[in-house]
Amino acid sequence: MNTMKHSVLSVSRTTGWLTSSGRILPSFLIAGAQRCGTTSLYRALAQHPLLLKPVLHKGVHYFDVAYARGMSWYQGHFPLKVGSALLTRKYGMRPLAFESSPYYLFHPLAGERIARDLPAVKLIVLVRDPVERACSAHAHELARGFETESHFEYAVELEDKRLAGAEQSLRDDPDSIHHSHRHHAYLARGRYAVQLDRLEPLFGRERLLVIDSHDFFAAPERVYDQVLDFLEVPHLGYPEFERHNGRSLPKPVPESLRQTLRDHFEVYDQQLVGWLGGDPSWRR
């Protein structure tokens, strides 16, 4: 079954590449953060008839780990222009393609690449309690086999050593992949303001929408309306909202460690106020 699925995907990718010039490019990206509800938002938006997801899968990961494959490879993942034209005639508005790759927010080169290759694109970023995000990310990477340290507190202690020189290494060799930078950045990925500040000069605040995922899950209709307004897309009814990719923790995290991490993130959380228009949900 896996072999058959792989063969189908290979044929689909080849077909996409051969017909790439006849396909549309994305108008917006869900750029992160990892374990912050990106899949849930992606699936809600994909139910809108004017928002077109990639043909094969949610995240293409072109601007972070597959950039060497070239723009034709990337464009081959999206719907055909002929289908887009039919939707334009039906709804009186050009549909918008999009994808969701949560590593884009954290990868040091992704923002520059996106700004260069998709100069009018908009970005959506979701954030959540960075302590909970770190715990969830560790459980996620452990379950997928990318993490070998089963104790969260030890993985946190190892992070600085694992990530030492990672950003410079990725800049020095743009086609490289740094395993720990992608899979072991439990605290670094939760310093959201640092990553947003890197994107602001490239896109401007008007093309960046930052969403508190707690607010999305608590009041999905309100946040969905906010996203459609940001994208300038008409409201055509609400989709079915579901929570996807939730994962329980393999073992409880000591409260003392949680408090240490809350203290660590405090200064970064304060810097989010300007992006969210108020305190993040976990600091209210």
Rank of each mutant, 00 (worst) to 15 (best):
P280H: 11
F230M: 05
H61C: 06
D229F: 01
F28N: 08
T38N: 08
Q34N: 12
A68V: 04
H179D: 13
G246I: 07
T3V: 13
L261I: 04
R162S: 12
A97K: 04
S169F: 12
F230I: 01
L96G: 00
D263G: 02
L29S: 11
I30W: 10
Y74N: 06
V11T: 06
H244Q: 12
E147Q: 09
S176T: 12
R94P: 00
P280Q: 11
H61G: 01
Y74V: 02
E240C: 02
D279T: 05
A188F: 12
T19P: 00
P280D: 13
L29H: 11
V233S: 11
H48W: 15
G237P: 05
N245Y: 08
L96Q: 15
A85H: 02
G237E: 15
E232Y: 02
M4D: 12
E255Y: 00
R94L: 13
L187S: 01
D197F: 03
L86T: 02
L86G: 03
H184P: 02
A46R: 14
M4V: 13
D263P: 00
L50C: 11
E147P: 03
I30V: 14
E99S: 04
Y103E: 15
H48P: 04
L142A: 07
C135D: 00
E132Y: 02
A44E: 13
A68Y: 10
Y74I: 02
R198A: 15
H77Q: 12
D129N: 15
L231R: 11
